[in-house]
Simulated assay, not measured.
Amino acid sequence: RDPCRVRQGANSYGQLAQGHVEDLSEPRLPDAAALKDGALRSLSGGGGHTAAVTENGELFVCGQNHRGQLGLGHNADLSTLQLCHSLNQRVTKVVCGWDFTLLLNDCGRILACGSNAYGQLGVGQHITHSADLLVIESLEEPVVSVAAGLRHSLAVTDSGCVYQWGRGLFSHAKRALSPRSVPSHLSSPVPSLVPGLDQKTSRMVTAGLAHCVCLTGDGDLFLWGSNKRGQLTATEPFLSSPTLVKRSLLGNEKVINVWSGWTHIVAQTESGRVFTWGRGDYGQLGRQASTSQNSKWPSTDPSGEGRNQEACLPAEVKVLRGATQIACGSEHNLAIVDGCLLSWGWNEHGMCGDGSQSDVFQPQLVSGLSPLLIGCGAGHSMAMCAAKN
């Protein structure tokens, strides 16, 4: 069966590859003739753009391109998928920040394009944005994992070291740490070694709006950055260095995979259990918070905004147990469980695919699809599905 690809959600810049800019609240096949019958290996979306990598290492892009985030050498938006012809190397992974894109090639080098207003491309401060793909030269060791937050980036090298760049966390850190100085890894325009992980061998990273997540080879989870929504399972408003999440909060099990939205985190343990925590008012945690749970967390965060006490603590979403894939948008999520596609969370633009714009508070089935690969943008969703016979 040949794979098909579907899109739903926000489409203001053509990021759904439909040839128009109208939102879609139900899954629909894109105008993707350029892809032919090629299978995909990586899907990602940003604030208004989409990127897909095929099994043979080609990059296809569409959507918003005002900062050159499509890597096509120009700044015109596209409402259909287009091959990046200038790419002369095989790509294995793509991740999208708000208005920038990072690619990992099969040699472990990172290529970057789009906005560099916050140093998020990792190429120094002399470039404000680039429509051409730039190699992050200062990362000489091969990279095995790469992540893009709203305005900051992370990478893990082959030896297990973690690097961070971009000033997306700087203002949060400055407010929380004053009068102390902000550590260099939180404000660097080039990759800076993250301290506090030197005794660990890191395996993968992911990132949120203003926080960072690292998973080690031992199955330990480390978090740092903004804790405004309790996403770091801590009481401090900001953590400047990686802080271990106690295994007792995650069923006393090792973590094998982790994903992040803007202000919430999803983790899967070795037995297949899936835990969520952080911001949950759009339903992005996939669970109704229990009012009977005893919580030691403060009821308000330092900004004075209300913080759901229970949401700060990881809790299992049982319907997601055994999920083979999970993807997080800014405030919504997709998962593949038992070959079925589930969605939940923020749904203002219809990105949960149920035909409505009402937020979804528990994972629900997106009917009629057999998903093979999933991905999310800030407000849109993508899936490669098995075609019906």
Rank of each mutant, 00 (worst) to 15 (best):
S290I: 03
E236H: 13
E236F: 03
I256W: 03
G251P: 03
T269F: 08
G280Y: 07
V258F: 07
R273C: 09
A267L: 08
I256Q: 10
Q288K: 11
Y282R: 11
W259Y: 14
Q284A: 08
R279A: 09
G261Q: 07
F238P: 06
S295T: 13
L244P: 01
E253Y: 04
R287L: 05
R287K: 09
K296D: 13
T291A: 05
E253K: 14
T269S: 15
R273N: 08
Q293S: 11
N294W: 10
V245G: 02
S241V: 10
K296H: 15
V266Q: 01
G272N: 03
T243Y: 01
T276Q: 01
F275W: 10
K296G: 14
W277T: 10
E236Y: 04
Q284N: 12
Q288S: 05
T269H: 04
I256K: 12
S292Q: 14
W277L: 07
G251Q: 07
F275L: 09
G251F: 10
S248K: 15
W297L: 13
V274A: 06
N252D: 12
S241H: 12
W277N: 02
L244R: 12
K254N: 11
K254C: 12
W262Y: 11
W262K: 03
N252I: 02
S271T: 14
S271L: 13
K296T: 14
I256V: 15
S290C: 14
R279K: 15
Q288H: 10
Q288L: 13
S292L: 15
G278Y: 08
S240I: 01
K254Q: 12
G280D: 08
